[in-house]
């Protein structure tokens, strides 16, 4: 399973960010063509992202692009550009219904067919309204291209007629619901951005909280938040120790043809082994795994 802890927002109109985002090694770089780009720069940002996606500096990092809504004058042009440029994931803004996803999927398929692309571009639905949250369960299951759903908090709180707070009580229902919908559909769940880049403590609190809820990761606006987030997502020593034991036991069982594996008298089944493997992967990615502990 791919790690998707950090999804770095990069405004398509901010050239130096576009050119340098890869340096910070986020799990996913998400170029934005939507809200962060002024109407007068929609065309220039689109072309900039079109070229960035094809540049070798973005060959080894997962790329996503938040396109403009299909019903806007820019949505289809954005898609034309980013699909041709080989983006990995298209992030749909303001997903309210299943149809929103299916419309986007059809538009993408049409372009892929036109250019004879073998690549199956993935979709990420951003849920930014009460209607979207209520429909999240259906949205999460409606397309095999959908790799995740994400909460877009700024628009969502406006729709709820409230404001964002650092405690985040106003988001608790939406977060839980989106997480449940994603897990039920076996796709990723992403939390919204924490936009006060100066408040490091608040950021740490929020990341710890959403990690605890079960989110795979979070959208970020500032590259400086990446390392903090990754270290919070890093497994603890005990978790790593546990995972190594599970893997050791499963390999031992495999070698000796044992059907049932147990540790401390508890059954170890396939999902637990998978979980242990992902802990190790995470530990390696987080740089908290010593060489001697490596399998």
């Amino acid at each position: 399973m791919r790690l998707r802890r950090s999804m770095l927002f990069v405004p398509g109109s901010n050239t130096s960010m576009v050119c340098n985002a890869f340096v910070y090694k986020p799990d996913t770089v998400m170029f934005d063509l939507e809200d962060s780009v002024a109407i007068s720069e929609k065309d220039s940002a689109r072309l900039m992202v079109f070229h960035a996606l094809q540049h070798f500096t973005y060959a080894d990092v997962e790329t996503a692009v938040r396109v403009n809504p299909l019903e806007s004058p820019y949505g289809l042009l954005d898609l034309e550009a980013v699909i041709r440029a080989g983006v990995d994931i298209v992030r749909l803004p303001k997903t309210d219904t299943v149809d929103d996803v299916l419309d986007m999927q059809n538009a993408i398929e049409k372009i892929e067919k036109e250019i004879g692309s073998k690549k199956e571009t993935k979709l990420l639905a951003a849920i930014e309204s009460a209607l979207g949250v209520v429909n999240a369960v259906d949205i999460a299951r409606c397309s095999k291209r959908l790799m995740g759903i994400a909460l877009g908090a700024e628009d969502f709180v406006r729709d709820l007629r409230t404001q964002r707070t650092k405690e985040g009580l106003e988001l608790s229902a939406a977060r839980s619901h989106i997480l449940l919908a994603a897990r039920a559909a076996k796709i990723n769940a992403f939390d919204s951005v924490f936009s006060d880049v100066k408040d490091k403590e608040g950021f740490i609190r929020e990341v710890t909280y959403i990690k605890g809820l079960g989110f795979d990761g979070k959208s970020l606006v500032n590259p400086n938040q990446i390392s903090t987030l990754h270290s919070i997502y890093a497994p603890t020593k005990q978790e790593i120790e546990w995972a190594l034991e599970v893997i050791e036991a499963s390999e031992h069982a495999k070698k000796h043809g044992l059907g049932v594996i147990s540790i401390d008298g508890k059954m170890v089944d396939a999902p637990i082994i998978a979980r242990a493997k992902s802990v190790i992967e995470l530990a390696k990615a987080s740089g908290v795994m010593g060489d001697d502990e490596d399998e």
């Binding site: 050239t15 050119c19 065309d43 070229h51 540049h55």
Partner: peptide, 27 residues
């Protein structure tokens, strides 16, 4: 101090903006 692809993107944008049908580019 722009990278090559930045210069490319900006030049193409400037050209498309000057062309009448530049809003429907031939990718």
């Amino acid at each position: 101090g722009a990278l090559d692809y930045v210069i490319k993107a900006r030049l193409q944008t400037a050209i498309l903006r000057a062309l009448e049908d530049g809003d429907k580019p031939d990718w």
